[in-house]
Design a protein around this nucleic acid. Sequence first.
DNA 1: ATATAAAGTTAGGTTTATCTAACAAATTTA
DNA 2: TAAATTTGTTAGATAAACCTAACTTTATAT
Lengths: 218, 218
Amino acid sequence: MLSQTEENYLKALFHLTTERASKSEVGTNELAAALNVKPATANDMLKKLKQKKLINYEKYGKISLTVAGRKQAIEVVRKHRLWETFLYEKFEFTWDEVHEVAEQLEHIHSSKLIEKLDKFLNYPEKDPHGDAIPNAKGEIKIQPGKTLLQVAIGKTCKLVAVRDNSASFLQYVVSVGLGLSCKIRVISRQEFDGTTEIEVNGKKSIVSQKFAENIYVA
Amino acid sequence: MLSQTEENYLKALFHLTTERASKSEVGTNELAAALNVKPATANDMLKKLKQKKLINYEKYGKISLTVAGRKQAIEVVRKHRLWETFLYEKFEFTWDEVHEVAEQLEHIHSSKLIEKLDKFLNYPEKDPHGDAIPNAKGEIKIQPGKTLLQVAIGKTCKLVAVRDNSASFLQYVVSVGLGLSCKIRVISRQEFDGTTEIEVNGKKSIVSQKFAENIYVA
DNA sequence: ATATAAAGTTAGGTTTATCTAACAAATTTA
DNA sequence: TAAATTTGTTAGATAAACCTAACTTTATAT
């Protein structure tokens, strides 16, 4: 059985490779940063995960998940997102509160518990942030859509997911008037820095490129 | 914040002192046995818990919880029993399955989660094994009743709780035909070894003294 | 193409929770 | 009460997950 720490490394690798578009390999520093540890620490763990055949990794090379590693990572993501959905739908947690508690709950080991949780929630496909919930077989239905940054000026789109789950980011999302399924109109965009002016329910805001890249729309 | 391990030591101390009748102090060996660690390990932890003012303890002396330690212990017990109730009532877990998963869930840190869980279950006073669930203030309503061993020959009683939560014990309880609120008739008892002959729903069984001491009745 | 910067690794150290083996204190028993 | 047993403690080791500091490899930029 994997430790919580090992599970967290696999989950981070999954997010950095499969879920973050266009890049399917990561480096030690980037992984370390994502986990809030020093590169030296991540390096130790990489050796261990390689030894357990959960990642592909050679000294000074890039890192990727093996099939076995990816399977484990998806299971953790599945648990995380099911618990977020549970907290949001059944326990009146807010958008920005669910993540922190789900970070703990995702490490509970009990296949029966997850099966029952999934059933209790009626086999949801999305979590409260709009992210896809892998099913019991590890299959992911919904594909990551385009981001707000890719929406043309004048067009209107609908928020389907956010990529950053930190409470501070989510609180900012809310402060701009956004929520899941909100309609967003793109008013203008600055060429030189990617800043986008948007309108949500009559409220206008200017958001950074980085922000726009983290808002997934349809 | 306490580690999971520290929480487990406090919980064990609570069970060994306050919940197990007649004895309000414990020794290192007994504590170590309850936690499945070696006495030397427990000894290390005792020093740490003393330093944190969670236990009363002097070298070669007996151990007891301080008010602060007891408060923390009760909080863990509360969480454990609420989760057991949740698993049993909402997720169709059986009597003997709830304990193991609750051992993990009891360490999730979120006061909001516990409040919501308590509310969701409608503020239960007993868990599926009949044990009292401390309320949000740490108060325990139901007092531990008498055991099957104390029931006179010929009398009928009702099972209200069991003291040992191991799956093997609970499975044995079930095999004798027992469950929460079951009626038990005491047919006879051997003087020399405390063995008790009982009848449950027409089924007769002979149980050991140790078994009878772990069955609480009203 | 080489110097500098960035990324990655290694060595050695810390903390937490565990262990074994040896020892000391307290209790029981003959 | 003295010996034997049980109970409790200490010292020294180990493994996991982290750190800092120094070093090496790879990438970048003039």
